[in-house]
Design a protein around this nucleic acid. Structure first.
Lengths: 226, 226
DNA sequence: AAGTGTAGGATTGTCGACAATTCCCGTGGT
DNA sequence: ACCACGGGAATTGTCGACAATCCTACACTT
């Protein structure tokens, strides 16, 4: 039985608030869905998964209910749980919601700590540049996800951050499924840089326009590939 | 043991998709939190709740994990689950998120079926008027909630609708907690009517302005009372 | 041959009991 | 009077087993 509660902060004293098993398992499942370990549409056998994770069916089922609430899993009573599939319309919906959430985050950033935002996002952007240079698809997607995670995180809104997390997992799920056709592109890198620039300049209108353009471009790239 | 799976469509043939127990229990818990049956900050005893709902601890725990994921419950490992409390900052956060979600829904409505939206929202608005006339606080809150539920529902975005659901429950939780000071007001009724009017006119800019004003007013009413 | 009915197998849904951890409170010491 | 220190109770977390349900495949009827 593998230990699920590994302490991530060796020197830290404060993080005494260990997380519940269901939360940890849910995170593992999210990662698996994101990286394609659990393909869209596939059924999740409880006994198999429980054994693989080293936990019993109880905590596993609790974790799965979390993902059902998030929309990542679909529940068919007495049939089982399946990884959600995203058709073209759903992809558009994801990006519509992302635009709403991240747009609101941008507005908060403009009224808040812009310097912090620029610092955080520039750091994430540099990772994108490096990943693109190395032509590392996984690292590129990681950096892309990190960029948008930080965008909503520095907004300071817990709810926008939580909503964005789910949406980013869904986004990542698409990218992984279409891994063949999706490659690091200079355009994508540039789009993110333009966002940071707009924040630095303090031009809210410009920022929102560029964010919308960024989302539109992303949908275009994904739907044209499928 | 009481039957939880009551068929709502006697004559219908298609709706065979019965919902899972966890989903039903989660909905019951949401209602209880909304209406004050479970006060903010109070702990949820598992055995007691399970007995009261007529289910075992297993399904109940699964349902509770859903609410934890939604943010309605807070989990403290080995301590228990508590109903989330909302301080003033959190209330502002809720309305920030609501503005983002409902604003996006409004934009979709403007590009979609405006007539349907007007019909649905007018109907909900009439309930508000009636509740205000009868000075029925609960019915008034019900109508208010229904109005905003329909607003996101007619947008056609599943994700915006799901996000809004959680936010509306949190909103309702505040209203219930502050039930003493919150009363049906003509201003609130009028604000909703202005929203419907803006949709009917097809003026997106005006609609968004009025929506933002509506949210701001609501925050004002709630925070000044506490 | 096509469709229907039925038995088998497998999976999910549910339940009760056991183990682990935490908090409360009484006791003793300083 | 205050603080440190266990003992005990209550609650959560976990687990394995039982019951209900559904899919598959095969035999039977028309």
């Amino acid at each position: 039985m593998v230990s699920l509660t590994e302490d991530t902060t060796p020197g830290g004293i404060a993080p005494l608030a260990r997380r519940s098993t269901a939360e940890i398992v849910a995170e593992r499942l999210r990662e698996a869905i994101m990286h394609g370990g659990l393909a869209p549409g596939s059924q999740l056998g409880e006994i198999d998964l429980a054994n693989r994770l080293g936990v019993s069916r109880g905590p596993l089922r609790e974790a799965m209910q979390r993902l059902v609430q998030e929309g990542l899993l679909r529940s068919e009573p007495h049939r089982g749980l399946f990884v959600s599939t995203l058709d073209e319309e759903e992809i558009r919906d994801v990006y519509t919601a992302r635009l709403a959430v991240e747009g609101a985050a941008c507005q908060l950033i403009m009224r808040g700590d812009r310097a912090l935002a620029v610092a955080e996002l520039t750091s994430a952007h540099q990772r994108m540049v490096a990943a693109a240079a190395a032509d590392d698809r996984v690292a590129f997607s990681d950096a892309d996800q990190l960029f948008h995670q930080r965008l909503v995180a520095v907004s300071g809104s817990q709810r926008l951050e939580r909503m964005a997390q789910t949406l980013l997992v869904e986004t990542r799920m698409c990218l992984t499924a279409l891994q063949e056709t999706y490659r690091p592109s200079g355009d994508t890198v540039e789009e993110h840089r333009l966002l940071v620039d707009a924040i630095e300049q303090g031009d809210e209108q410009l920022l929102l326009e560029r964010l919308e353009a960024h989302m539109t471009e992303a949908v275009e790239r994904l739907t044209s590939a499928s």
